[in-house]
Simulated scan of single mutants.
Amino acid sequence: MATPPTADQFLAALRTEGLTIVEVGSWRTHNRNHKGPWGPVHGVVIHHTATSGAQRTVELCRVGRAGLPGPLCHGVITKDGTVSLVGYGRANHAGLGDGDVLRAVINEEPLPPDNEANTDGNRYFYGFECENLGDGKDPWPEGQLAAIEAAAAALCRHHGWSERSVIGHLEWQPGKIDPLGFTMDSMRERIKRRLGR
């Protein structure tokens, strides 16, 4: 069980990994905490946005869309590798997912198939939305992949987690395909190397 750090500690953890960070508005207090608890935190979920254009993508993730108010994540990782912080606390990113997957993340074990949607992931996971069309053709620049690796590793390092605490949305919620264009196994291997494990 891990208590979420303060917003300042979260920011410091990301900066320790050398990330380029933009603080967007009142991100420290922009959240959905009035809709349910935030924490304990157990891992990090990686998403793609199905959008293009950094400014538009960041604003969408900050504000949300019809029927899904923002923030839609904690940080937006754009094509150039910048991490824009748009919220902190409960965010509308993970939705309902598989409780067996959550148990595997907590125990840092191989993930089972995600075949149920019975557990509130917005309570338990950090979320990073990554600018990409999500069509399997839009490229993932190395700088962006490196930023995903570094952001996830920052939180793993802060909490003492291994790379197994980082999952894709497609591994959490049935029917999701994101992130599309790289494998989460390859990303976890990058994070493992970064953590020196």
Rank of each mutant, 00 (worst) to 15 (best):
T3N: 12
V86A: 13
T49F: 02
R65A: 12
T119C: 13
C73R: 00
E108F: 00
L111H: 06
V41C: 10
G175H: 03
P110E: 12
A152R: 00
N31P: 05
W27L: 10
E131A: 07
R194Y: 07
N107C: 11
A150C: 10
A2E: 14
F182L: 13
T82S: 12
T20N: 13
G143I: 03
S84Y: 02
G95P: 07
N107A: 15
V83D: 12
V58E: 10
D185R: 05
M1W: 13
S162F: 01
V166S: 10
S186W: 00
I21H: 09
G95V: 01
V101I: 06
G99E: 13
A150E: 10
L19R: 03
V58C: 09
S165C: 14
A50F: 05
G136D: 10
P179I: 05
L155T: 03
N31Y: 02
G75W: 00
E189P: 01
R65D: 14
V45N: 11
H34P: 09
P37N: 12
M187G: 08
G196K: 01
G43Q: 06
G36R: 02
C73F: 01
D80S: 10
K79L: 14
W140F: 08
W172T: 02
W140I: 04
H159C: 07
D80G: 11
W172R: 03
